[in-house]
Design a binder for these strands. Structure first.
Lengths: 190, 190
DNA sequence: ACCTGAACACCGTTCAAGT
DNA sequence: ACCTGAACACCGTTCAAGT
């Protein structure tokens, strides 16, 4: 009775695909390369994800779920700590792996995606905005729901932009930090 | 002696390619589709642009030049007018055409691009930052060069992010305007 | 339930050939 | 100088066939 290091093929495809999307985008993602990464044939990938759009949907959905799982515990922390945890999320790609947020990447490639995958982009954005609203609402107790929503959306957009531009400019973490510091100094992240 | 409505094939390719990149990105750009748009065969596109990377470089270079041409006259205007002209630049894609800034799009797809094309992304970013520095310096006469550079970079990144997210969320101009209004209210665009 | 090889119409690229 | 058809190795997708 041994517990083999059981490999779930579907999970292996999902995580290999997520990594490639983060590095190179959905459009360059190749079923044949993906199959090689996982150790199966490209036709087998279609068994788990019939079309490339289905795979995109699953990758985006998982990324949204992971955001909720990772950030939920941070929402109860003091404001500055919670925000710093949020900002740190966008810095992880500057470790040499040159990865980008799946949501930001797929937002750029949205016209290539089928409707269900677009729905998951929406859900991902809402997850960010809801989390930020929760954190902001504790600091700004008299702010209207509309203002909270607007501020949360602006912070989310600004962070995606910081990552996009810093990564476009030679994956430069210094540029990223400079941008984020300027956001902070301006009061956008208060 | 008639002046035929002379069509420059190279220019026709360039503008068709720019439109496709703005809508769907560099990776989905197809030489065969492009050739059909222009009325030639796909092999002929390679005569003008040997590789897809060369075409990307030319599209990005032209887009950077166009930015300079369009925005140079605005740099002498009063601060608020100059900034509004800048913000308007990012709103043009929300007219139903669902276009994105070529620089932002290619920043997302940077890993697929050859080095010369990446150089043009850099040049485009520098053009934005330099223009913003010029406009900001007249309002903030005692701000250091480093702070001006940081503020210009942050504004550029924030605007690219606003466009990326608003376009990702059903090309929603209302979302875009909400984000930009929040940037303004926070003082980021002062 | 999960995987595969072979076929299809696509893609960027090359090149010899045309004008 | 500019364009073309044909070939090449790629791509996502389908499907009958295997276990």
């Amino acid at each position: 009775m041994k517990t083999e290091p059981r490999i779930d093929t579907r999970e292996a495809i999902l995580s290999a695909a997520r990594l490639t999307v983060q590095k190179n985008g959905y459009n360059t993602l190749s079923f044949r390369d993906l199959a090689e990464d996982v150790g199966i044939k490209s036709a087998s990938v279609h068994y788990h994800f019939p079309t490339k759009g289905d795979l995109a949907e699953a990758v985006m959905a998982r990324f949204a779920d992971d955001f909720n799982t990772v950030m939920e515990p941070h929402s109860d922390k003091p404001f500055d700590e919670a925000i710093d945890a949020y900002l740190a999320l966008f810095r992880v790609g500057f470790d040499g792996s040159n990865r980008m947020c799946v949501g930001g990447m797929m937002a750029a490639e949205v016209t290539a995606l089928p409707s269900p995958a677009r729905g998951e982009i929406d859900r991902f954005a809402k997850a960010h905005i809801d989390w930020l609203k929760g954190v902001l609402s504790k600091k700004h107790k008299r702010m209207t729901a509309d203002k909270l929503e607007a501020k949360a959306t602006a912070i989310f957009a600004a962070m995606e932009g910081a990552q996009l531009i810093a990564r476009g400019l030679d994956a430069n973490e210094d540029v990223f930090n400079t941008i984020v510091d300027t956001y902070k100094a301006s009061g956008l992240l208060d």
